[in-house]
Amino acid sequence: MVETLRKIFLADLLTGLWVTFKTQRTSNIVTEQYPLERPRVGERFRGAPRLNNNPENGETLCIGCDLCAKACPENLIVVGTERNKETRRLDLTYFTYDLSRCMFCGLCEDACPVDALELTQDFEMASYTRDGLIWDRQMLEEGPRPTPYTR
């Protein structure tokens, strides 16, 4: 009897439709509209590397200690330094970072004693060439410039 009534009033169909409509609320939408909207990644996200400059005088924070290169399991950081005769300190001459082999483990960032090297929240690092993935010091200081997306 109950079974027949359920059939007449399409109870199962309605239950099914209810499930469908229940998930139609905007608060339940989980799809991200990338690239129209850039997703907000976590604050600690390990993405594109950046070599930080001192905000006051624009000089690099890096002291050329080579610790990041030693910490990296993939050996992909090359730090070039030169001893400055006057200040007797190491001056950074070049800094290359091979993104194509980086696995964003964060060990280099942890090793840096002065927070010069940092993995940032940028994640748009694609390049058409392998060479484009080898970042030099200028690229590391400026960060990636992804093409803006337009419709």
């Binding site: 976590g42 604050e43 996200f45 390990r46 483990c105």
Partner: peptide, 15 residues
């Protein structure tokens, strides 16, 4: 995965 990302910065290969 979002909790992982917020905690350590990566979703899958977390380290």
């Amino acid at each position: 995965l979002k909790i992982f990302e917020n905690y350590c910065g990566a979703r899958l290969t977390t380290h």
